[in-house]
Design a protein around this nucleic acid. Structure first.
Lengths: 314, 314
DNA sequence: TACGAGTTGCGTCGATTCATGCGTCGAATT
DNA sequence: AATTCGACGCATGAATCGACGCAACTCGTA
């Protein structure tokens, strides 16, 4: 029968790597077809595929390729090491290739970057979900997602490439946050409104905040990107939130008028957050807080929730 | 009833291939007359003819013969080109009056519209999730989500209001689809690439398609909105998908050049879908399929799924 | 902080291997 | 007598091979 003897190209497509990479893996690490006559085409058996799949999974989790290959050859079906971060860093150096600069952000970030380059949404989801369930939303955002996204953005701003990578990763992150929100039952009505500033396109940080809130048991309402001032005021007026978070990524979208309008409305929220690097500290109207990072925003939001509970109880 | 038991020569003439090729196809791929005694002449029944016709059509479209043969044996009637059956077109007249015009789309749509007006994401999620788990993605999209979204869009185009409602509902829908994708384990590598056309902002229909694919057990890769041609080609080149779906919502984003570029690339996909109302049927290059609705696109994609790529199997 | 060494993914090039359509030949079928 | 059968072989284009090199990232060191 046609016992799945895949050619190099087929395997490469299946794994999401280039054909030349398969050859390199074979030559450098001995990770190739079990039987191969030099000069002839490579024929990968199912067993070989399992080995390569292990290789892929390990590298997607940040294990250095050389080490991952050694592992894949010896124990083809090795599950991910539970402890994880305890990678013996002796002598082995990590390299690059066509990757995404993540600097010293840990092996998980490197793995995520690698999976992203391959457009491997499964691996991306795996890494993100694992990180969130292990370290929580805030830590994952600060140490894994933001560095990788920043790296992609940096690269893509410079070379106008990687746009598709950025889209894919953004969407995976968005989905992961959505899953967090859905997983945590929101008890109580949402009293916190999250919205992007007018014209602001980046809603991912807001979604991170939303997920963090959900994780902390705080219900919220997320409007999304590009919310015109009128729509925002309309929403505030209709839902009467206790706090409003307005995100601005770049200076051009950080019009303080929006904040003023929020405070001047008929249904004035108790607290207004000017979040994001776009806002300038000196031009903010009084009564607006400016959290510097996710953790601070979260603790502020928790304070709002508590004060509401108190006032409701009293 | 010897219904047209054609001889090898007759079939060969009809298909435009040599007689020996028919023999080769039989020996190499098992694609021959259903009943054949070795040594005797081959007698092709009409059913065999259909199979051969599929084989010819696929190979004519650039499918690797071995793959095409496997495909032809399994799914003899895989529709490839040509206009699909006529669409049921019915002028829906919306009653208007209330908040969001949903027409006669059932009570669920009305409930969804009402929850949307309240910006009540919990209720929105509830309605959507229930509909999807009851009726499936395709029906939910066609009878619930699309009408409501269209209603919101219509209203907001007229009055410049409801923008926040549209955002919220869009995001909820997006999350629901993402949840569907995550719930269904994708077995096998994603061989179908979904992408918006250049400049195209609406990705929700694509996400619906992705969810429908996942529901049917077909893995896919979704790039998202606003994918420049270069990025799309890059992705195709790197991942080598069997099929590419390019969505265009409005005519202004439906540049046929993108399709041509896809077909001309070095790693030409097996099938290209021009999806969405933006495309004009008469300006599509040859070899491009234009599904008229979600259901048709889904059945086409299902045909692609069966082609496990082992094109170089010995 | 800057620089060099070590890693790694992948593009490129000329040569080789493979898959595939089809022609040819002697024997068998119709 | 006209085809067709099975087997074999050939020409050709696509895929792959091995070798080499490049670019880019990380990390230790000056």
């Amino acid at each position: 029968m046609t016992d799945e003897a895949l050619s190099a190209g087929a395997v490469a497509r299946r794994l999401g790597v280039a054909v030349t990479t398969l050859r390199t893996w074979h030559q450098r690490y001995g990770l190739g077809p079990s039987e191969h006559v030099p000069g002839h085409h490579r024929r990968y058996t199912p067993a070989d595929l399992i080995r390569l799949e292990t290789m892929r999974r390990l590298t997607a989790n940040g294990v250095a390729p050389a080490e991952a290959a050694r592992w894949a050859v010896q124990a083809p079906n090795a599950a991910l090491p539970g402890p994880g971060p305890r990678t013996e860093r002796r002598g082995t150096r990590d390299g690059g290739g066509a990757t995404i600069p993540v600097g010293r952000s840990g092996p998980a970030a490197r793995g995520l970057a690698r999976a992203a380059m391959r457009l491997d949404s499964n691996a991306i989801n795996e890494v993100i979900d694992h990180a969130i369930s292990t370290d929580g939303v805030v830590v994952t955002w600060d140490t894994l997602l933001r560095p990788v996204l920043a790296g992609i953005g940096e690269r893509h701003a410079a070379t106008a490439a990687l746009i598709e990578v950025e889209h894919l990763v953004s969407r995976c992150v968005s989905e992961a946050f959505a899953a967090v929100v859905r997983a945590h039952a929101p008890h109580g009505p949402p009293r916190i409104l999250l919205s992007c500033a007018d014209e602001e396109q980046h809603s991912l940080p807001l979604e991170a905040f939303g997920a963090a809130l959900a994780e902390a048991g705080i219900a919220h309402r997320l409007l999304g990107a590009r919310v015109p001032v009128r729509a925002l005021l309309e929403a505030v007026n209709r839902t009467g939130p206790a706090a409003v978070v307005l995100w601005s990524q770049t200076r051009s979208t950080a019009d303080p008028t929006q904040l003023t309008a929020l405070l001047a409305g008929p249904n004035r929220p108790l607290l207004v957050f000017a979040a994001g690097p776009g806002w300038r500290a000196d031009s903010l109207p009084a009564g607006v807080v400016r959290p510097v990072n996710l953790a601070e925003a979260l603790s502020l939001a928790a304070a709002v929730r508590d004060s509401l509970d108190q006032s409701a109880a009293g």
